[in-house]
Design a binder for these strands. Structure first.
Ligand code: ZN
Ligand code: ZN
Ligand code: ZN
Ligand code: ZN
Lengths: 150, 150
DNA sequence: TCCTAATTGAAAAAGATTATCAATAAGGAG
DNA sequence: CTCCTTATTGATAATCTTTTTCAATTAGGA
């Protein structure tokens, strides 16, 4: 089911601002904060209010079409998600985030923690941080350059 | 090593505002956002600027004495941490957060994701959400009450 | 006790998010 | 296709949150 169908199926209207936000997120190379989406829209010559960006993101979040990525500071960037339960691994070099699945792999840990703490667990937040292949290459070249020129 | 020793050992001065923030976090039943710490200090009759709360938290974070807890909205509450690598499980009922360890339990998953994605992972964020024992009891009583009175 | 540099707090600036409300436009009815 | 109704938009203003600035204060060593 396309996002347009999801939207309409949930009783919302398919509007220009919503299409613009989805298009920008779709073309994004990394998670985007609301203001970044707003600026990209302006650069592309689209007419789109910042307030509508916030509203649209809140709606897309409710529909499960986007998810939040947490950074230690400057929290709350948005990325599209594919259907199902996923987590993200985020490159600390360029910000590129991709999905990985692995809810099952947390089952044992979840059970253990429930027993140890007495808490009843019904959700979790798991994100990995690291370097994407491209940024690893860049880092390697940087080290090579330093070893030659110092 | 006490937090005072950690602080002084790192070359910082032991000051009144820093002691106040630590004391408040120490007595807190749940993670606190900066403004909450500020208000608690005022209520306790302490003289403490909001700006100093932000500065102190940044310092404590750098020293590893506190950590951030992420909520979907209204991110960034602070809790004290004990030495070593820990994660938190946060009660969605009352906000109470407690630590659990389990870095090893993520090793297999980390390795798998590295192989699948090509990313080089060097950090992660893992938090569980659920109900603490007390809030579970409250929820049960609520259900019992409803089943009798409806 | 005195000095000096780190630290603080008040105020202002900058940013992020939410509330308001008149104007607009999506989508169904006719 | 045109008209209506109502969801949705965007500009403005109002709230918060966080960061900057800078003079006054104070911790801790000489
Ligand atoms: Zn967060
Ligand atoms: Zn990268
Ligand atoms: Zn609870
Ligand atoms: Zn961990």
């Amino acid at each position: 089911m396309s996002w347009q169908e999801q939207l309409v199926g949930a009783g919302y209207r398919l509007t220009r601002p919503r299409s613009i936000v989805m298009e920008i997120l779709n073309n994004a190379k990394a998670p985007l904060v609301p203001s970044a989406i707003f600026k990209k829209a302006q650069r592309d010559g689209h007419s789109l209010g910042l307030v509508s960006v916030y509203r649209t993101l809140a709606l897309l979040l409710k529909l499960g079409l986007v998810t939040l990525v947490h950074f230690s500071e400057g929290c709350h960037a948005y990325v599209l998600v594919s259907p199902g339960h996923h987590h993200h691994i985020i490159c600390v070099g360029c910000g590129k985030a991709i999905e990985f699945s692995g809810a099952e792999d947390l089952d044992a840990l979840t059970t253990r923690v429930q027993q140890e703490t007495g808490y009843l667990i019904n959700d979790h937040l798991l994100q990995f941080y690291g370097l994407c292949p491209a940024c690893q290459q860049a880092a390697i070249k940087e080290v090579e350059w330093l070893s030659k020129n110092i």
